[in-house]
Design a protein around this nucleic acid. Structure first.
Lengths: 227, 227
DNA sequence: TAGATTGTTAATCGATTAACAATC
DNA sequence: TAGATTGTTAATCGATTAACAATC
């Protein structure tokens, strides 16, 4: 019923709605909400109708009602704990990522195999990676960020899944999936991996800019007459 | 003909193929390539046939042929220059991002409004943001990374577009698009913005893990009989 | 030959868009 | 009332998947 792209939009709606509420607004139109998240008003209305939220034909939607329902549907907790595995440049930047706090995400620990990076008394403690599995089990961590070198990505990933993590944000450029090793350890393939690959995004932007340039050279200066 | 998701896959193929070549391989099957990028073999063959690359019915595809054609199709340069606008935590982490170098991406400058962050003699120089437009024009920069605070995101974005940038990797949580201000400055709406929102990705992972947990509780322990 | 792999076409699936009726 | 907005259905669009013929 709720597919993945839709779930992403719902999370965006929730963020915007909380801001609007903070500014004192009480009502919102599908129009506004769409603009704020980069969707059309039709998509917004469709999404909301799937959630069985209805608005007023003239007055739009009540922000409080939307927020309440979205929190419920998304199962949003007040605080969501994550760990970071691999505290090199990328990992340690994320350790101190301000935005997380604002969105209710708390990094409760980092892990690294290099003892020079271990720092158990920091604002966010960094432990030896050998203690990761125990920590995950003890604190029942569901989601982790993987930011280790590519060479060890698969091994560390399997360790995370083995310890009970079921959602991984993957900053390596290795394609991860639940293998036999994971399944042996009790994960029946039901884990989620999302990839963040900034280099790839940049390459893709160069490509898209290039083809856009080329196509606008071919059919030049199209202006709608009369607008 | 080449849609966006496909273009992303093509860039992934290229990366994998270069690695394989580096390891001494000469041939590859659609099967292998698919595994390495998280796609099915059918998708790989479809993609390659769109590019009019053909393989041998039994022996797979020739890596050199694939690389050459992909470099051509993607218009991949040896070095692609980008700038980073906003050198706070996120921006400065990216200033030193190792992976960029490996993929032929070079950060040639950073810009910031805080003079404490300006550092014109660094490994990668950081200039006052007031010099950004001139720099972009002079060096004909096509792609930039936007990592400023949300409050100024739209204004800085418009400045980037005005200066001639046509592809933006957006690390703010503001929805950016070419507005009248951009179009006035010569961009006919033909700019590309990609968003990277790590907080949103994490939230989404929590949601996906939760619904997967719930659904596996409802229909318990499904094992294919006989496997 | 038998087996494996490519390559293409048609079928399916899923999401967005368009259109418009309902109604505040 | 007129105008604006919601809400739903059908049409469209686009990508993936399935199936299978071709052939090395």
């Amino acid at each position: 019923m709720i597919h993945e792209r839709m779930a992403l939009r719902l999370a965006k709606y929730l963020r915007v709605l909380r801001k609007l509420k903070g500014l004192g607004f009480a009502k919102v139109f599908s129009n506004n909400l769409g603009d704020a998240v980069g969707a059309t008003s039709a998509v917004v209305r469709k999404d909301l109708s799937v959630l069985q939220i209805s608005g007023n034909k003239r007055g739009g939607y009540t922000i409080d009602v939307l927020i309440e329902r979205l929190v419920d549907v998304l199962g949003k907790r007040d605080v969501e704990n994550v760990i970071i595995v691999g505290c090199g440049r990328v990992g340690s930047a994320l350790l101190n990522f301000q935005e997380f706090g604002r969105e209710g995400i708390r990094v409760i620990a980092g892990f690294d195999s290099d003892e020079n990076r271990v720092q158990e008394n920091g604002h966010v403690p960094v432990y030896p990676v050998s203690r990761m599995a125990g920590f995950v089990e003890e604190h029942r961590i569901d989601v982790g960020i993987l930011a280790v070198p590519d060479q060890v990505a698969t091994a560390v990933f399997e360790e995370m899944i083995g310890a009970g993590i079921r959602g991984v944000l993957n900053f390596t450029s290795v394609e991860l999936k639940c293998t036999a090793a994971c399944i042996d350890q009790g994960c029946l393939g039901e884990c989620v991996v999302h990839n963040v690959n900034i280099g790839l995004e940049i390459e893709n932007l160069f490509y898209l800019v290039r083809i856009q340039r080329e196509s606008s050279e071919t059919l030049p200066a199209q202006k709608t007459p009369g607008s």
